[in-house]
């Protein structure tokens, strides 16, 4: 084991802490203003829980938040699974590798508005009714490269002889995958999944076009509500979403740790 101090470079710690502060400053502002009594997200008056109460009385905002979580969760799981398989297929060189990889990353380079309008036209041409299902399918499409890139980058650096040795040791590929490949890839799979989740949770344009009755997500709601201004109600639901996400992820982490120990 290499001693940890070797890895430490001067000032990286200080820079990192500053960056963390930079990342959390707006979040702090957001949370503080969700307790603002005034119907304004920019002028502070006094402390109040009123806006959290308002959320309880606003079914549109509740459905939107729930839809967002459903869509992001399903899209992340599917996209990460597809991306993992794709990464395993592409890390060894083969004829046409560059083309396949380029294709996988294509959703990244397309302006979203274009894919959005085109996807809408596709669904219509196929006669598919717009709803939560169409939103999820569309999200899987643009989440794939976000999950794929970290996994692929990690596979690149993995010791390939390790995988080969595993192939010789275990009877079937499923065992290799479960006992060797997946544990080795796990950090990358996790960061890929987290990226995909974030991207899906934040998507607005695509969702806007392919959503049908009852499938409005939170970003869509917020984007169109913002004409009049960000209300503390929106800040409050964002804070709640943050809390829910954190609880979910901590739970998943905890379960993962327990699974590993067994």
């Amino acid at each position: 084991m290499i001693s940890l101090h070797l890895k430490k470079l001067p000032a990286t710690r200080e820079v990192s802490l500053l960056i963390l502060a930079y990342l959390y400053l707006p979040i702090l502002v957001l949370i503080v203003y969700s307790f603002n009594a005034n119907r304004s997200a920019t002028v502070w008056t006094e402390f109040s829980f009123a806006w959290y109460g308002r959320i309880l009385a606003n079914p549109s905002i509740q459905t939107a938040a729930l839809n967002s979580i459903i869509v992001a969760t399903i899209a992340t799981v599917c996209a990460t699974a597809i991306a993992l398989l794709a990464a395993l297929a592409t890390y060894r060189p083969f004829y046409g590798q560059k083309m396949v990889e380029g294709g996988i990353n294509l959703p990244l380079i397309l302006p979203e508005i274009v894919t959005a309008v085109a996807t809408l036209l596709l669904f219509m041409a196929l006669g598919i009714k717009l709803g939560l299902m169409t939103v999820i399918v569309a999200h899987i499409g643009f989440c794939i490269p976000f999950a794929y890139l970290p996994i692929r980058a990690r596979l690149n650096d993995l010791d390939k002889s390790l995988l080969e040795a595993a192939n010789d040791l275990y009877a079937n590929p499923w065992q290799v995958f479960r006992r060797v490949t997946l544990p080795l890839l796990w950090p990358a799979v996790l960061s890929g999944a987290v990226l995909a989740f974030v991207v899906s949770l934040d998507d607005f344009i695509m969702t806007f076009f392919v959503a049908g009755p009852g499938s409005t997500t939170l970003p869509v709601y917020i984007f169109s509500a913002i004409k009049a201004g960000v209300t503390p109600e929106i800040n409050a639901i964002s804070t709640l979403m943050l809390v829910i996400s954190i609880v979910l992820v901590v739970l998943a982490f905890w379960l993962g740790q327990r699974g590993k120990q067994q």
Binding site: V29, L30, L190, F197, I226, L242, I246, F253
Partner: peptide
């Protein structure tokens, strides 16, 4: 490390617009 991965991504579970508006408040 795992904790840091989480810490880095948590702010991004809030909406892009909302984050931009938070900056608007900070920088005004």
């Amino acid at each position: 490390r795992n904790l840091m991965v989480l810490l880095i991504t948590i702010p991004f579970w809030t909406n892009l617009l909302i984050r931009n508006y938070a900056w608007l408040i900070i920088l005004r």
